[in-house]
Nucleic acid binder design. Structure first.
Lengths: 210, 210
DNA sequence: ATTGTTTTTTACCATTTGGTAAAGGCACGA
DNA sequence: TCGTGCCTTTACCAAATGGTAAAAAACAAT
């Protein structure tokens, strides 16, 4: 029942695989899947095109490997939302971490955005198996908090969508934000403050005002 | 100083230009600029590839024509935000209209999203000349309302970003939403209600709670 | 019908792109 | 030092792609 021997990868393999992934992230996030070329990725990685193919089974394989590898760390902050903590604080902490990720890893955000906008043709299954369970779990957690009266009533699913939408907006629509707010730093401080206030009000204000 | 005579386009020209734009919207919004091919667009439009080129000066020209034409109607709801109306109502009306547009014209939303994510290479100038002035104008309007004490204090720029982010999310990330909320209709009613509550609370709650 | 103009098709072309074959280089243990 | 197996390069290729040339067809005006 054992599959292949699966020899452990050499130092060179590890180094080059990582270089390829880095390069692919750069290129795929900027141009989308079909817009990216193996030549670009090879250039960026400082190696030849056939050498890419030696390490990965083609363009699609690189893309899938990237998406799958990044999915884990991208979801980590949500996974860490803890039953034990203070509800408001847990959620706001999540919001803050997502904002930080948008600022520090815009390429990852754009990579996912590209993939999803185009219908998630290569990530669909992974969404089902990895994202959906986590999403459902955290929705249940939030719903529990609300039922205990520790948060203002809100639809947990929609809440999480809002958080994703707003935080990722700053990474994905960077180009637009920069046009509209030409200050250097693109007003990150203002963005942080605004987003935090927005969700704080949503989650604490007891009633929907008229 | 007159340019070309600019004869008025024939009926056939109008019809075919429109057919091409429709087809291009479909294809570009699904695959992004580089992912779209003239053959696909020609197929979708029911005509031959050289015939496309007869009507438009190449792939880039089609794309730019699409973006520029759509920019107007896409911005219309924001333009209609009126100084004379009730502040909260004006903004919530804008939010509702943006939600409707996301539901009814997801292709347009995705077209813009693709373009912006990839750095707005073909729409940059248009952002400066058409979007920025309108954005600045409406930010000033909102700032005025806040100074008159008719809205809770908020950064108008960030407010508009949030509105865009959330409303467009439902169109752009449709694939993800459908995986996470498999109900038919993708929970549009819940989405509408949630978004309205979110911004209502932001704009009316007088103080930032602790 | 005839002529001039607009529209469409057919047949190409050069470049780009993902991918392959096969030989050459290189490190490293015996 | 000599293989042996891992890594890299060179030289290709077939398909796809944006675009062109020019003839044919459709149409409009006389």
């Amino acid at each position: 029942m054992v599959g292949e021997p699966a020899k452990k990868p050499s130092r060179i393999q590890i180094r080059n695989r990582r270089r390829i992934m880095d390069a692919a992230l750069e290129v795929f996030s900027q141009h989308g899947y079909r817009g990216a070329t193996l030549d670009q990725i090879a250039d960026e990685a400082g190696m030849s095109k056939p050498n890419l193919i030696y390490y990965f089974d083609g363009k699609a394989a690189i893309h899938v490997a990237l998406l799958n590898a990044l999915m884990e760390e991208w979801l980590a902050p949500l996974a860490e939302m803890d039953e034990g903590g203070d509800p408001l604080n847990e959620i706001l902490t999540y919001v803050r971490r997502k904002m930080d990720m948008s600022r520090r890893y815009p390429r990852e955000s754009k990579l996912f955005a590209n993939e999803i906008i185009q219908g998630a043709p290569r990530m669909g299954p992974h969404l089902e198996t990895r994202l959906k369970p986590l999403f459902d779990e955290k929705c249940a957690l939030i719903r529990g908090w609300i039922e205990e009266g520790r948060l203002a009533p809100t639809d947990p699913q929609q809440l999480i969508f809002s958080i994703w939408a707003i935080t990722q907006h700053y990474a994905d629509f960077e180009a637009q934000v920069r046009v509209l707010i030409p200050n250097e730093g693109a007003g990150w401080d203002a963005a942080h403050a605004h987003v935090e206030t927005l969700f704080r009000k949503l989650l604490t204000s007891p009633e929907t005002p008229s």
